[in-house]
Write a protein that binds this DNA or RNA. Structure first.
Lengths: 335, 335
DNA sequence: GCCACGGGCGAGAGCGCTCTCGGATCAACG
DNA sequence: CGTTGATCCGAGAGCGCTCTCGCCCGTGGC
């Protein structure tokens, strides 16, 4: 961590251009009120010296940091097992850099981390926070609210009654689920089962609600709780086959579980989609395209979701409320 | 981006504790030379006021930032299609937070981004950089070197003759490949083929070299170039079957391509592992465990790799050279 | 031809911290 | 009891920047 060559200061640029610091500052920050010939001289001095403003000094007085914290609360490894996170980050990153903001990444796993994050946010190092709070009992939101920073959540938060006063961006999980179910019905299927995700996450709840929107409160035996993992999908599928051998369609709350379900179906000699049609959710690429048969699934635009989160955060005027992005059914061979 | 409540300053703490700013600073920064009763009074004042040091002011004078840039050069979507990146990030994050450093994430896609990153690094916002430079003609390393920041690369850089003067952390790609090949030979296989990765990446080159270490310069017809994608794996597999229908084993340079190869083999009626044994690389979980049959593959400890990169960067004394992490063959059903 | 006015620029204070340096205090020693 | 030396603490300068304030000069109106 040895320090670099001493970098030129505003002072130095001012001296070279034969003006005052104030003038250089004005030019550098693009404020008007500096006549052209002078401004030009300053600009030349700036790049002759290779001047780059010292962000620390600037923040000290402006109290702005041009930096945003992205907080990922992930005690489990699930998020890391799929590429969601990376896509979202990319969307966020694009939007932030377009507005000259930096992205400070905070990954948390346990309570200690939460305290640390709380301190960091309270420390006023960043201008706002993007939060992926994935589980229902997560204490993080409170910590963040206490820090008093502008915040946008990724995914509908479970607290707060679902809306009002809290900014979030989410996919239309419920609508996507409805599309999936309607597609199965449109295929002439009659006994539809649903494998839910981990129900402590709002995405899972919303997808289940979508299923019920169309199916009514149908046979509760046709709904089995999974956990978003392939193993969970397998277990749920086995259970469903046992309970209701005549089922002819399955809607799984994500592709990973759908993949698990496919294996169990094959194991039981059911042909997909002939005997049983299967629809997933996410369009998680390395999985959805590689299963046998490839999955029909509900795609969400993850990168766009990230981008919009960042945009809402930077756009100070926006009302804090929910923003729901559309989903799209992608037809492949499984249904 | 409305600003928060004015936070207490050193001054305020000093006043409350009835000491000078200097003393508070000493206590806060854990320097000795402050007698216990006084120190205690200061500490009480600190948490009564909820004082958190202003990092900007601190950086201004210390020229340290306690922040590290993580630069991911990724013009393609490949990295985002697998969870590598996230795991590595997690390892890095753990190590950095253990040393009270922040992680500033810079994702780059094109030339413009490179210029921006160069400016950012030159701007002296961070104390060092971790770089994932994935392709051979990437201009990023030069930009970074010019910024004069301590840097550690993820994966062996292709330039610089492979070692000497540049710090990097990599998996033992070559050794892992040798293990994979020896395992196949140990199974009694005789006609081994290799599907390479994209050869503009050192990981692909090293794995190919490992294959050749064991096989000699064997039949060049038994080596087909892939690109690390499932589609590439399929194409390569088809080519290999055409060239040499009698092959009885395939080593693919990653699991994604191995999955593609499995599909083509099944399509051609070859049973795995009975007719053809298949070994992958990476142990990329959602894929390796879910293929049919599950993949035998070479595992690398990605998270540890990230952790070590961070550790080397923070550990100023370390010699800048390469650090190679061991790999491990994971046996599943495919070989 | 004088005064009021406004726009362009510089002087200077101050953001919150660290760190050097010198003054005060106290124990110990002659 | 005076002196030395070590130790603890405070005063103050200064990091590089922004931003307010006021001076100066040029212009236009009466």
């Amino acid at each position: 961590m040895t320090d670099t060559v001493p970098r030129p200061t505003l002072e130095a640029v001012a001296a070279r251009a034969g003006v005052s610091r104030a003038t250089v500052s004005r030019v550098v920050n693009g404020s008007d009120g500096v006549r052209e010939p002078l401004a030009e001289r300053v600009r030349r001095a700036v790049d002759e010296l290779g001047y780059v403003p010292n962000q620390a000094a600037r923040s000290l007085v402006t109290k702005r940091h041009d930096a945003i914290a992205v907080i990922v609360a992930e005690p489990e490894t699930r998020v890391f097992a799929d590429p969601f996170f990376a896509r979202q980050l990319r969307g966020i990153s694009k939007e932030l850099t377009a507005h000259d903001n930096q992205l400070v990444l905070l990954l948390t796993e346990d309570r200690d981390d939460h305290a640390r994050v709380g301190r960091y946010l309270a420390g006023g190092h960043v201008d706002g926070a993007l939060v992926f709070s994935l589980h229902i009992d997560d204490p993080l939101p409170q910590l963040i609210q206490r820090a008093g920073l502008p915040t946008v959540y990724g995914g509908r938060p479970d607290w707060n009654g679902g809306q009002g006063g809290v900014a979030y961006v989410d996919s239309d999980n419920r609508g996507g689920a409805r599309d999936a179910v309607r597609h199965l019905l449109g295929l002439g299927r009659e006994r539809l089962a649903h494998i839910t995700g981990a129900l402590d996450q709002t995405a899972a709840v919303d997808r289940l609600d979508g299923f019920r929107d169309v199916m009514g409160d149908a046979d509760p035996l046709l709904v089995a709780e999974g956990d978003f993992t392939p193993g969970g999908g397998e277990r749920a599928m086995r259970l469903l086959l046992e309970r209701c051998p005549s089922l002819d369609a399955v809607f799984a709350a994500n592709d990973l579980m759908a993949a698990g379900a496919l294996r169990v179906l094959r194991e039981h000699g059911r042909r997909v989609p002939d005997d049983v049609a299967v629809v997933g959710f996410d369009d998680m690429l390395p999985v959805a395209e590689q299963t046998d048969p490839p999955l029909t699934t509900v795609r969400q635009d993850i990168e766009e979701m990230g981008r919009l989160m960042a945009r809402r955060l930077l756009d100070d005027g926006a009302e804090p409320d929910g923003l729901i992005l559309p989903t799209m059914l992608v037809r492949r061979a499984s249904a």
